[in-house]
Design a protein around this nucleic acid. Structure first.
Lengths: 350, 350
DNA sequence: GTGAAAGCGCTAACAA
DNA sequence: TTGTTAGCGCTTTCAC
């Protein structure tokens, strides 16, 4: 409608033109300066930065993304931000991303496919350059969208035969085997397992690794002693209660995650069982809280830092390669047993 | 360089022009349809949506923001995402925001002014339409930037005389007074306080409210019994240890937040003190974990939902008003005492 | 009701 | 080295 500046002569946040005018250079020079182009002379570089500071100019990232076709945003979708494992993970991921000049968009799917769908939509609309799906197995409904829009992806425990998709494999088996060995060495033979939700892929992997480990040490897995929980504190309490309803209860419980284990600690206390004297409990994740429970939780450590680094690295490589060079990559994150106070020898048989 | 479509005839994610071509309408009509303009006829509306689905078209939000000048993004900056209080808060805020068609940008300042500065910069560059600073008192260094860029703001416990800034007041006093009353009624007279970092504004507010409450019930506040911690689990342990080093220790400890209190629970256990028999402990926040500690934590509840709603509402009002109508608003969030198992009568005097 | 066309603020050719 | 200019994908006048 009006030519530049005609409507409101002053009352605007400064744009690249204002900087150019003040520094008496072209807007191209301002752009080059901001982007660190080596072509700009020292003299002009100085003048431009001076003007930028004077005007308190902040480049508009929407304009940048639009024209460059690169948003420098990575999305990260976690299963449930309310589980302390994930904030710790997000924290690491964000630090790394910001250090590399990327932004992040965080979403929590809460195991709800509808939520997942809309947050993927939002990410596509924002033109993220990659998304880390750390939902551990609920990702299938949105995979097509992402691949249609050509967005690099890193998935946990899910191999997809797509050059733009990488996979992070979690070696739960080693940690779980170590936990079982530890328990067996202590004298336990009746070991129960509080599983995660079966619709979560990693929960199934963990459960299978539990079965494999039990078999390896020659212990039977009683069907009733594997109960499905939901990875929450409340779920741990409920799971424990179901286990307690059985005759000849287990002397040790391995849990699919720390939240479940902390719930068990609480429930056992209420039932008058003393951990580890009457019952041994092992968690998985090693969230910050695990060190501070009563007693401190013996758990299988899954490093947030390692996971975050793998996820970022996978995305960065995909994003910064020419798209024709993309290949499917795999990363492995290991686990290890952390011995604390929630495991001990089982009580003497009655 | 090349005219539209010359370079790669097909190999692109669809844009508004592709939709227009397929629906045999102008791009203006597509835009109107997407934005729900009532001016488009039913016949064309149908054709356009059909084309959108066929092509799996997602509008580019950078382009939208650029031209409309509205990003529909709110930023939320929290003090420390690793403290479970904040993920729960973010969760609520995000839900409300998404329900109202807004996106959110989350950042955790980790009490580091440099981090705060860069995350505010990123938010300004992304043209957020408002930011909720839930850092409780570390915001001063960035206030100028935000106000220079004319970005609506909502602050916790910080009044700023600016029409684009709203304030959320937290009524800690009521909850703290209730906690002190409760303790006094139980028979406690020696009440210690584990404070938060003094550089955090809310920590000072809480501490002052503690002093006021003590005075109101006629109890002296011993200088040595107020020790500054850092709102973490470790900090709670350290704070407890410092209190224990004193002769004639307190019989009850009120903590500036739940993390500190949980640390105290742990430290007391290690020292062989039984809570609540030997020592009463009260937290503040009522994070989800508080119900699951051993014993369950008596704490002063600060509703994440209320806080998130107040923050969103403040921002929405600022963003959707004509800028001339903006006025400073204040919201009040209340607290209340939640009785659980970590408080009891003090041990009989020796 | 619908379409044509002018930009939003910036980057990246290309020219000088 | 620097400046000129053509769009990035979309919304929004304005004219029909």
């Amino acid at each position: 409608m009006a030519r530049k500046g005609t409507r409101k002569p002053l009352d605007k946040t400064p744009d690249i033109r204002a900087v150019a005018a003040m520094a008496k250079v072209s807007i191209a020079t301002v752009s080059r300066t901001i982007n660190g182009s080596p072509l700009v002379s020292d003299r002009l570089t100085k003048r431009v930065w001076h003007a930028i500071e004077q005007l308190n100019y902040f480049p508009n990232s929407h304009a940048r993304s639009l024209v460059s076709g690169r948003s420098r945003i990575f999305g990260i979708i976690v299963e449930n931000i309310t589980n302390p494992f994930f904030p710790e993970l997000i924290q690491c991921f964000e630090e790394i991303a910001v250090a590399h000049g990327y932004e992040i968009l965080v979403s929590s799917s809460n195991s709800d496919p509808a939520v997942l769908t809309t947050c993927v939509r939002r990410m596509i609309e924002r033109k993220v350059e990659g998304v880390a799906m750390l939902t551990f197995g609920e990702e299938e409904p949105v995979l097509d969208q992402l691949s249609f829009h050509d967005i690099p992806l890193v998935l946990a425990e899910f191999r997809l035969d797509d050059p733009k998709t990488s996979t992070i494999l979690l070696d739960y088996a080693t940690g779980i085997r170590a936990a079982i060995d530890h328990l067996v060495q202590l004298g336990h033979r009746k070991i129960a397992y509080l599983a995660g939700p079966h619709k979560i892929h990693s929960a199934m992997t963990r459960e299978n690794d539990f079965r494999t480990a039990m078999e390896a040490v020659g212990l039977p897995v009683q069907k009733k002693w594997v109960v499905e929980c939901d990875h929450t504190l409340k779920g741990g309490v409920a799971g424990f209660d179901r286990l307690q309803a059985l005759a000849a209860g287990p002397t040790a419980i391995l849990c699919s995650n720390d939240m479940t284990a902390i719930g068990v600690l609480r429930a056992a206390y209420l039932k008058g069982l003393r951990v580890p004297h009457d019952l041994s409990v092992v968690g998985l994740d090693d969230i910050d809280f695990a060190e501070f429970t009563l007693p401190p939780l013996t758990t299988i450590r899954l490093s947030r830092g390692d996971l975050a680094r793998a996820a970022f690295e996978a995305l960065r490589q995909q994003a910064e390669e020419t798209s024709s060079a993309n290949i499917h990559r795999e990363f492995l994150v290991s686990t290890s047993l952390v011995l604390r106070g929630s495991t001990a020898a089982p009580p003497a048989e009655d």
